[in-house]
């Protein structure tokens, strides 16, 4: 191989491309020159055996060969595409297809669905209940005595003396237990209302998912195991968690479960207020007074209950700053949740 043969090959290329008139011809051209074992690459191989003083010029010529081959190929390709478009009755195949709109579930529904699926796989069934409740189901049967400050924990919208908008989905626990005998293993998703000032952090209503398991031999250890399993499946297997004592009238002992902040991996950030932890749910062993209210014998069964807010978790999960955006339903937000 010498300089002359390289330039001759360039001339051959130019002649040969003139004869290409179909996609198939062009493919032959590509296979002949441009693939790894094609002529151009083979000539490059020859560079290794060339005399050192010839190499700079030869290298330059070979590069010219390669560029020419590629350029001729590209030009011909686009030329052929245009010919083809014209040849098929003027249809431009690069125009986008006729697309149908993509439907979405609301982010809250999606978060709820994901949670529900996990609990269903652990043997829980779904129970629903009314949003208008009475004092008995929402408070009294859940061991909130009348005139007890625990009632201040939940600012309530009242409809009359006894009727109210449920402040948690816990009244569904009462309805389920009053309707059937143990074993109980249910989750209770739904909308709840709190008379709290509307801000970026809180809205006058939100969604909860509660769980209830009642049977012989249910212990706090099983509660921890259940929720730890949930947390790992929902937030990822690396999640760390901690249970710490808290107070809810309807459980005793009661706990809050915190998980390591999945935004900063526990290092501390704005969202977790630099603590590295996020409060995600409250839980505990069903208070014997609740069992008494629904006619269960606390000496025969034990149970656990847990509850978490969906909206706030969805915000964290999806990185939405303002809870009100969930209820504005701007389709530019909704369409991101396909």
């Amino acid at each position: 191989m010498n300089l002359k043969s390289v330039y001759e090959t360039i001339e051959t290329l130019k002649a040969e491309i003139q004869t290409v008139s179909t996609k198939e011809d062009l493919e032959q051209f590509r296979l002949k020159y441009l693939v790894r074992k094609g002529i151009v690459q083979q000539m490059f191989e020859g560079l290794k055996t060339a005399a050192p003083e010839e190499r700079p010029l030869l290298g330059k010529a070979l590069n010219e060969l390669r560029q020419t081959a590629q350029r001729l190929f590209d030009e011909k390709k686009s030329q052929l595409e245009q010919v083809q478009t014209a040849s098929k009755g003027g249809i431009d195949l690069t125009i986008p297809g006729r697309r149908r709109p993509i439907g979405t579930k609301h982010p809250i529904t999606q978060a709820l669905d994901d949670m529900t699926d996990i609990f269903k796989a652990m043997g829980f069934a779904v129970a629903l209940g009314p949003e208008i409740e009475d004092d008995f189901h929402n408070f009294e049967a859940l061991n909130f005595p009348p005139d007890h400050p625990a009632r201040d924990m939940q600012d309530t919208f009242f409809l009359d003396e006894t009727a109210l908008l449920r402040t948690h989905t816990s009244p569904v626990q009462i309805r389920v237990m009053m309707n059937q005998k143990p074993p109980i293993r249910h989750i209770m998703p739904g909308r709840v209302y709190r008379n709290e000032a509307i801000s970026a952090r809180s809205y006058c209503m939100f969604h909860q998912l509660e769980g209830l398991a009642v049977d012989e031999n249910i212990t706090f250890a099983e509660l921890k195991g259940t929720l730890a399993t949930f947390a790992k499946k929902f937030f990822g297997s690396n999640v760390r968690y901690v249970f710490r004592p808290s107070f809810f009238p309807f459980t005793e002992p009661s706990a809050e479960m915190d998980i390591s902040c999945f935004l900063c991996n526990g290092k501390g950030c704005r969202v977790c207020k630099q603590s590295g932890w996020l409060e995600i749910l409250g839980c505990g062993m069903v208070d014997p007074n609740v069992f008494k209210a629904v006619g269960y014998d606390p000496e025969e069964v034990t149970g656990y209950a847990f509850g978490m807010g969906i909206d706030r978790t969805a915000l964290l999960l999806y990185g939405i700053d303002d809870i009100r955006m969930l209820y504005e339903n701007d389709t530019r937000l909704l369409n991101q949740f396909t």
Binding site: K120, M122, G123, F124, A125, V126, A127, Q180, P183, I184, R185, H186, A213, D215, N217, I218, T219, F220, A221, E222, K224, G225, T226, A228, T229, V242, F243, R244, P245, P253, A255
Partner: peptide, 25 residues
């Protein structure tokens, strides 16, 4: 008792022996 003893000392029992509920799932 458990408040002072430590919630962290309760084992995490990642299994449950459940009686199957009757409800439609």
């Amino acid at each position: 008792v458990v408040r002072i003893y430590g919630y962290d000392k309760i084992p995490v029992q990642e299994r449950a022996s459940i009686r199957f509920i009757e409800d439609d799932v």
